[in-house]
Design a protein around this nucleic acid. Sequence first.
DNA 1: AATGAATGAGAATTCATTCAT
DNA 2: TATGAATGAATTCTCATTCAT
Lengths: 199, 199, 199, 199
Amino acid sequence: MNTWSFMRVTDGNKIEQVEKACITLMVQKGYGGASVSEMAKRAGVSKGYLYRFYKNKEELVQSLLTRHIDLILDHINNSLQQNNSLKEVISFLIHYLFKLGEENPDNIKFVYVLIHDYNFQFELKQQEDIKKVIQRVYHIGLKQGIFNEYCREEEIFSIALIYPIDFMNLRFKNTFGSAGWDTNDIERVTNFCISALRK
Amino acid sequence: MNTWSFMRVTDGNKIEQVEKACITLMVQKGYGGASVSEMAKRAGVSKGYLYRFYKNKEELVQSLLTRHIDLILDHINNSLQQNNSLKEVISFLIHYLFKLGEENPDNIKFVYVLIHDYNFQFELKQQEDIKKVIQRVYHIGLKQGIFNEYCREEEIFSIALIYPIDFMNLRFKNTFGSAGWDTNDIERVTNFCISALRK
Amino acid sequence: MNTWSFMRVTDGNKIEQVEKACITLMVQKGYGGASVSEMAKRAGVSKGYLYRFYKNKEELVQSLLTRHIDLILDHINNSLQQNNSLKEVISFLIHYLFKLGEENPDNIKFVYVLIHDYNFQFELKQQEDIKKVIQRVYHIGLKQGIFNEYCREEEIFSIALIYPIDFMNLRFKNTFGSAGWDTNDIERVTNFCISALRK
Amino acid sequence: MNTWSFMRVTDGNKIEQVEKACITLMVQKGYGGASVSEMAKRAGVSKGYLYRFYKNKEELVQSLLTRHIDLILDHINNSLQQNNSLKEVISFLIHYLFKLGEENPDNIKFVYVLIHDYNFQFELKQQEDIKKVIQRVYHIGLKQGIFNEYCREEEIFSIALIYPIDFMNLRFKNTFGSAGWDTNDIERVTNFCISALRK
DNA sequence: AATGAATGAGAATTCATTCAT
DNA sequence: TATGAATGAATTCTCATTCAT
């Protein structure tokens, strides 16, 4: 192993630590309250180092959001390429989202916080990707003729993507008295979602 | 009109201006980005004046959120006291929410931004009020026996309250290519919501 | 009783309350930390009222200091007019100072704090009064021929006036492990003081 | 001289400048009146820089006070370790205090102002150190059997430490018409002090 | 590649003071 | 006589960002 490849590994770790710290702090303190200094300290790197990878704080956060959303979009696209039915696509998506929330609640909290923030829009290119993916899902449903008359692309987005994310965060916040979830909850959310879109 | 009443009107106006400025800035820049100085400047009052009414920035924002949510809860409670059916209660609620969004988009944006922020919880008392109201709506639906098997209190909250708010903000953000809404949209959202909860 | 005299009584009380509040806060928080608003609130008067009597915060504090010092000077002058010996004059003074400290510790703390503050000098006229009084005491001692060779006017001031005040505050601050004082302490301080000046 | 050592010198200078500015302003305006902004400006550093070294204004001032007092305590302790007589210990102390006042009046003014401020106590550990030192001086005097019957530890503190400091400040303030001091004054103060404690 | 010293604009908040009533 | 609403300058402190090393 040469020094160069060794360095790369080191780098990767550092940046990974920065991103973890960023997510944690964004969730805990919000965009305004999360300071770059604290991110660097938590990640064990210098502030200067951090600025060599990201133009500024906003870009760091935005790039993280983009990557998180991209992962979700990739997952849906994979699911779509396997000629799944609408039900399968939605079920896979929701199970995937719950898996993310179980692996690390902060990841889902982070997405939740940012997609509802007027300071962070999806990047333009990604917005197109989202539209495309939602359209593909919508067309599958149309082809299968299973949508009720009130269902449009917006409802696919709101119900199949946003509603499960909101569900998890409602539980994180313990608003209605339950703190986590079990497989029954996941099934119920999945079924509710599909039933909401169906005739 | 005597001087006294003139003074009062002036006062009322000032605080009203502060609150308007606060809402606008919260929506535009988020909690961390919205500065008290700018709020005061926009409202045409001094910073010191503002602090005679609110202990600090957080209290100003929190009190505004509480008031906005209270208005919505009051509306639902009124609706419940009139022995309305589930469908009527939900329909009234959604129409009310759209009315708010039409009167002043910032009001709905403000609520949207804050209820998805991990730094702003509902005040404890209000959280209880929300639970109570949602429970009452839920019980009406149970009595009428019209819920599908996947519907719980959480779904009432997410679908009848959050989904319409999200819908408006999706339109404000122009995510799927339409910027406002018309009466058809309102009807569609209403029907979709009721259909989602129903058998 | 006419309205005028009634008013005067009321006024007197109010101003007295203001002065009490001022002293308490000056001792507790220092000049910078004591706010006029809090003084007014504690005294149960409005800020505006307070400013009708004192040009500003400094004048309020300065006038209080001047009055406190004047009381002490008056006491010494009375003592001097009775053809007392040096020992009697000093003994009366020290007993008087301890009486002040017993009546209300804040009074002695207040004097202690201010006479050691570079922002508060004695008023010019009062500085002359102090010099005069100290000179008279000095001359009595000279006439009686009891001073040791190292004793000058400055020592009269430092030992007969400042040292007892410092003693009480050392006890208030509990620096050497005793919190108050008894009659033995008073006698000891008196004797120490006289002995320090004597041959 | 290499760049590194050059940097260190620069750094040291900056902090030194901050401390000088702090002392000057504390003496001129008191704790409340001395602003951190002005300290930074006078020291030629940025506000942010200052806060990298001191948690806040209080810590800056307190740390300076502690250091000044420590220097004095160290001096007494050195003197004590050389098996000096009481007279020598006190004489050395007083000469040292006057030397401090001659080197830089602000240093003695600073100590004078803060030890008489109810907002600044000695740090707990230092208070113990002071007690210990005073006790050691007291025990020397006891062993030599030279104290008069009115002399206790408190008097050692008040007369050997506080009285010379007060003397210098009385001169700085020009209260009795002389502004500085000469060697005769120093001798007189020393002799007065020793004579005051002696039989 | 990596650091962290240094900045300075700007944040939240306070408070002495004024003045219309 | 007495109030307290209103101000705005000043205060303490933070933080994103830069840059010399």
